[in-house]
Design a binder for these strands. Structure first.
Length: 791
DNA sequence: GCGGAGGGAGTACCG
DNA sequence: ACCGGTACTCCCTCCGCG
């Protein structure tokens, strides 16, 4: 019979030496199905030495390996664009076989023995996660005892269908609360007290260790609930690094088996640090957070706020330090439970907001939904390349350890400091991808210095002189052309749709996914961890980029436009309707690259520094770039004051008024009227606390937290305030959760936060830190401000 | 023994 | 565990200082 299904998850199982592919899906009648494919033959390649006969190498493999290998095929492939002869070796234990075969005569190397079988299956059969397929299959008894409505054996591999909309998934969002009197809860000692869940339809269920219940019972109840509700997708926040480990370890202490997935097995660690639940998509929303660089401290609250899904604006947030006290206090316990439930709701809503993108990215790069978000950008790009490049006969290189070598990147111009009126920002559209297309820059087109000139000729990059063959097109060119085309196509479709339609949302998610991969191709080529690492590819792209921007500057100046600033692929110039249009046209003609006037500023402000400026848009909004306002490691109070200063400068052009504003804010701060929260400074721990070479504030704060029993991991953000005291700054640091407003060193915030942030801007108008700091009475202040005005 | 200069460590940004 | 270019703060060593 034929089964049409949407692919949810895939895993491989070893059964008596044979491999089975388990494909989990949802069919058109909304049955949850498991399709088992027994027929897939795993394989790897043996690349043959240039002077060796592949047939003889194949014979040798057969003779030496005997039954350990199955079918052998001699094939032609390409490796970094160079044609090679290879033997395709079908076998069960390819890692082991490849190791043995490597030393045989005539063998150059073994390739693709490091590709996992489940991924191999997806790629070779063009089976795509988060997509619809049709498969010829035979219904089977559920002898495997899995949680599925139907179980089938596949008679042939599934065939991809051109059908886009995803089925309605059953989702369950969870928030785990564990009890600890001091510091982070420890699973061997501290119980789980609340498990809060919300389904995709909004049905709440909270398992709470009240009265007569212990955590063994609530974990069991939760586990049973998962089995009855049978979610397709489970989401949480920080679950891969925390919750699942906690549950696992807690269950170990309680002698409980945590078996809630569709194959009744325990969550297990998979690639990229992901926790795998067989047959269920396990999403950790923390893996999505890097999509939102504007959210500096990645808490559930902040993410929900940013996405506009926070349910209650004035809810009581229970900090980790206060959690035990809330639980122990009969009057406060309900508040804690409400807080936990609200978090589960936030997780549900964040999941809904991000799922489209995740699905599109999963389908695009062909990694299962729950792997794709955990995988770092480089790996996502790599899997996409692997899938596309197979079709061109290109073999997949191994990841090899390489020494790091730096190279020159983009060109950054010195800005013209001060205020500028009516400025246009010209941006090269997808500059690096388009340069790589234009000059056929690709890992498989690069000519080594000693390689002779190819018949079709070559492109030579400026400055660095790397050469790339013109013909045939490299795989970067093919892939990037495809991606840019797809994105343009999607965006034109979107123009005919309402913003709030399902189709628009899905297309928008898809174009974002396509963009992510397009933009990562350049960085990928220069990444030493890349399988297709080719430094000259990245180096040539940036060299062409510098050449391009320099040429564009000359064109602008010849046109009579003044260049104010530029960074890598952008130019800030004075605006003149005709001249600007002429420049855009000339760039297109001479350089073959598209330029768009991305923005126009009514007014824009620069200091002497690169990568830091602020502009005023025609609609009255501010665009602040690089300055303290944009940085998560400055206190809110400093950011607020700097924003105020920029607003006054850009809109009213009045440094005097701005200075007066700063002084008023300083007065507020000195009276401790500024909210305590606005004084917190957040910094990331980028290594273990012991590994730091010099003393640093955030490290001291981290040590203090650890001393109190808090677990801190690399990558965590530490929030601290500066308190009164003697000596270096790092000796006057307190984690904000343990600090009171009374001990805060307000003068630090005045002199090292607010004033520098304000002076950064105002020094351009001859108002320095001293003037901002000058203590004076009301009349005197006004007098001195008048002096500024007069000078 | 002390203060300031300047290099280095550390973080986070821009494109 | 995608790249290089950049700004900025604070730590810490070292040098001069009759």
């Amino acid at each position: 019979m034929k089964v049409t299904f949407w692919l949810l998850d895939v895993n491989s199982e070893s059964k008596e030496g044979a491999v089975e592919l388990w494909i989990w899906g949802i069919d058109q009648a909304k049955n949850r199905v498991l399709i088992v494919d027994h027929s897939f033959q795993d394989y790897f390649y043996v690349v043959v030495k240039d002077d060796a006969d592949p047939a003889k190498v194949a014979d040798r493999i057969r003779r030496e390996m005997g039954d350990a290998v199955g079918k052998l095929e001699t094939v032609e492939r390409r490796y970094f664009g160079v044609p090679v002869q290879a033997v395709k070796v079908y076998c069960r234990d390819k890692g082991k076989v490849a190791k043995l075969v490597r030393s045989l005569e005539g063998v150059k190397e073994c390739l693709e023995d490091d590709i996992r079988v489940s991924i191999r299956y997806l790629i070779d059969n063009n089976v795509v996660p988060c997509s619809w397929h049709i498969v010829e299959a035979t219904a089977e008894e559920n002898v495997l005892q899995v949680r599925a409505d139907k179980v089938y054996a596949a008679n042939s591999p599934p065939v991809l269908l051109d059908k886009t909309e995803a089925p309605q998934l059953r989702t369950l969002s969870n928030y785990l609360t564990a009890y600890s009197h001091e510091g982070s809860p420890k699973p061997d000692r501290n119980p789980v007290i609340i498990i809060s869940t919300v389904t995709g339809e909004g049905k709440e269920k909270q398992f709470s260790a009240d009265e007569d219940k212990d955590d063994k019972q609530i974990i069991q109840e939760f586990s049973n609930y998962v089995k009855t509700y049978d979610p397709d997708l489970i989401s949480g926040y920080g679950t891969n690094t925390k919750d699942w480990n906690y549950l696992r370890d807690r269950c170990k202490s309680l002698k409980l088996k945590l078996a809630l997935d569709r194959a009744c097995s325990t969550p297990h660690t998979s690639v990229y640090g992901h926790k795998s639940l067989t047959g269920i998509v396990n999403l950790d929303l923390a893996d999505f957070a890097d999509q939102f660089p504007e959210v500096k401290v990645k808490t559930i609250e902040n993410l929900a706020d940013h996405l506009g899904v926070m349910i209650l604006e004035n809810r009581t947030v229970v900090e980790d330090v206060d959690l035990a006290a809330y639980w122990d206090n009969p009057e406060k316990r309900a508040t804690l439970k409400q807080f936990a439930l609200d978090n589960a709701h936030c997780i549900k809503d964040i999941t809904a907001a991000l799922l489209d993108f995740a699905m599109q990215l999963s389908a695009l790069v062909s990694l299962p939904l729950d792997h794709v978000m955990t995988a770092a950008a480089g790996f996502r790009t790599e899997w996409f390349l692997i899938k596309r490049v197979q079709k061109l006969g290109e073999l997949i290189p191994k990841r090899i350890e390489q020494p790091y070598l730096s190279y020159a990147g983009g060109l950054v111009l010195k800005p013209k400091p001060g205020l500028h009126e009516d400025i246009a920002v010209l941006d090269f559209k997808s500059m690096y991808p388009n340069l790589m297309i234009a000059y056929n820059l690709s890992p498989d087109t690069y000519l080594l210095p000693d390689q002779k000139t190819p018949a079709g000729g070559f492109y030579e990059a400026p400055e660095v002189k790397h050469r790339f063959r013109k013909e045939p097109p490299g795989f970067y060119k093919e892939i990037l052309t495809y991606l840019i085309g797809v994105r343009a196509n999607i965006r034109s479709q979107m123009k005919n749709l309402g913003r709030d339609t399902v189709e628009f949302r899905v297309l928008d998610a898809r174009q974002k996914a396509v963009k992510v991969i397009t933009n990562a191709a350049y960085g990928y080529a220069g990444w030493i961890g890349a399988r297709w690492y080719r430094k000259p590819v990245a180096e040539a792209a940036s060299a062409w980029g510098r050449y391009t921007i320099q040429t564009a500057i000359q064109m602008a100046e010849k046109e009579g436009l003044q260049v104010i600033y530029g960074d890598t692929d952008s130019l800030f110039t004075t605006y003149d309707e005709k001249k600007t249009a002429a420049l855009v046209k000339e760039i297109k003609q001479e350089l073959g690259l598209e330029v768009e006037t991305a923005q126009r500023y009514v007014r824009v402000f620069f200091t002497e520094a690169k990568k830091r400026y602020a502009g005023l848009f025609p609609d009255g909004s501010l665009d602040i770039v690089g300055l303290e306002v944009m940085r998560g490691d400055w206190s809110k109070v400093a950011q607020k004051v700097q924003t105020g200063v920029l607003k006054i400068i850009l809109k009213e052009k009045s440094p005097e008024k701005a200075a007066a504003y700063v002084q008023a804010e300083i007065a507020e701060l000195r009276q401790r009227k500024t909210p305590f929260r606005d004084l917190i400074i957040w910094k990331t721990l980028t290594k273990p606390v012991e590994a730091y070479e010099v003393n640093a504030s955030h490290v001291e704060a981290a040590k203090a937290l650890k001393a109190k029993g808090w677990k801190l991991a690399v990558g965590d953000k530490v929030g601290y305030v500066i308190v009164q005291g003697e000596g270096q700054l790092y000796k006057r640091v307190k984690p904000y959760i343990y600090a009171s407003y009374g001990e805060v060193d307000v003068e630090y915030y005045v002199s090292k936060q607010v004033v520098p942030a304000a002076a950064r801007i105002l020094e351009s108008f001859d108002i320095d830190e001293k003037m901002l700091l000058a203590q004076k009475g009301k009349t005197e202040k006004e007098k001195s401000l008048l002096e500024f005005a007069g000078s």
